[in-house]
């Protein structure tokens, strides 16, 4: 390929889509796990629910802007092409966005719902049929768990889709392996978890130890899983056909080497893993007491997000530079 035709808008879109999927997933898990008949980590769940719809919405807007003909984007929804990852993914994104909005609604308190409705200009509000009004007033908190469950496969689908969009392109050997989808999924879930660490620490309400334990154990697991994907990706690629080997040279000596090893692997993956493991040591070893050092936790969370962005940046650009010639 001569020049990349997908650039930063696509990088942002893949990152933001994955971030939303991760936020929803982590929040849904926090909702789903019960303690005394209530969700065990309500504040985490709520933060995730409040944040989840927005990155993906912004990302989709960027995707539309990246089109040569943005005003024609609706055509995607009038031609269902099941063999095109972009066609399937667009439907998935729409479903996910609506679902995450419903999920957000279910996490709003009554006064929040009412103050939102009060913002609708009176003239319009009067026109809303009573049935819809009642519906908007509905307390959906009992639905949270069902929405969470419904959301698991869809959020995972969105996370995977951001990888499949690239992985399904056999013309680009850097992408076309069966590991890219999982890599993007775990990275997406990890960035969602990290975003919740950051959000929860910025919250006025002091964070509880068990909340951090939940987020840390999840993020550590996800980062380790990501490592288990990235390393085989490299090793297996090196043992693969020439086109794949040549493609991997992009990050093994080629132009993306430093970004990959320093910014993604080092600063974006291993460093936050080290910080989280260090913080979490008392829990893992069963010795000492688990403290939270907000500064470290915020750093780790920020780095995970940075690493997630770097991964997408590297894949979008390095992948387009590869091919069979």
């Amino acid at each position: 390929m001569r020049e990349p035709v997908w650039e930063f808008l696509i990088v942002n879109y893949l990152f933001l889509g994955g971030l939303s999927a991760g936020l929803y997933f982590a929040s849904a898990l926090a909702t789903w796990i019960q303690e005394d008949g209530r969700s065990a980590y309500p504040r985490i769940a709520r933060w995730g629910a409040l944040l989840a719809p927005w990155p993906v919405s912004l990302g989709s807007a960027l995707l539309v802007l990246d089109l040569g003909k943005p005003m024609r984007f609706w055509k995607i929804f009038f031609h269902f092409r099941w063999r095109s990852p972009m066609s399937i993914g667009s439907w998935l994104l729409v479903a996910f966005t609506f679902l995450s909005l419903a999920y957000l609604w279910s996490w709003l308190e009554q006064d929040e719902r009412q103050s939102l409705q009060a913002r609708i200009p009176g003239k319009i509000r009067k026109r809303i049929p009573a049935r819809v009004q009642r519906w908007l007033d509905l307390d959906a908190s009992l639905w949270r768990r069902n929405l969470a469950m419904l959301g698991f496969p869809i959020a995972v689908g969105v996370g995977i889709y951001t990888g499949v969009l690239l992985g399904a392109v056999q013309a680009r050997p850097f992408w076309n392996t069966n590991l890219v989808a999982q890599m993007f999924l775990f990275s997406a879930l990890s960035s969602g978890t990290a975003a919740l660490v950051v959000a929860r620490l910025m919250d006025r309400e002091p964070v509880e130890l068990k909340e951090m334990r939940f987020l840390y154990s999840m993020d550590i697991t996800l980062i380790v899983l990501e490592l288990f994907i990235v390393l085989p990706y490299l090793i297996h690629g090196e043992l693969s056909s020439l086109a794949v080997k040549e493609a991997l040279a992009q990050v093994l000596g080629g132009p993306f080497t430093i970004v990959f090893w320093l910014f993604f692997m080092g600063i974006g993956l291993l460093l936050p893993l080290a910080i989280e493991l260090y913080e979490f040591k008392p829990v893992i070893l069963g010795k000492g007491t688990f403290h939270i050092q907000p500064r470290w936790a915020l750093t780790a969370g920020g780095l995970v997000l940075f690493g997630g962005y770097m991964l997408r940046y590297i894949f979008v650009f390095a992948g387009q530079a590869t091919g069979f010639r």
Partner: peptide, 25 residues
């Protein structure tokens, strides 16, 4: 019907497609 998403440009192993700078398709 082309929305200019450029997916096909990327998916062509022979790099045979281009983005038309005038029509954006």
């Amino acid at each position: 019907d082309c929305i200019g998403c450029k997916y096909c440009i990327i998916a062509c192993p022979y790099d045979a497609r281009y983005h038309n700078p005038e029509t954006h398709t």
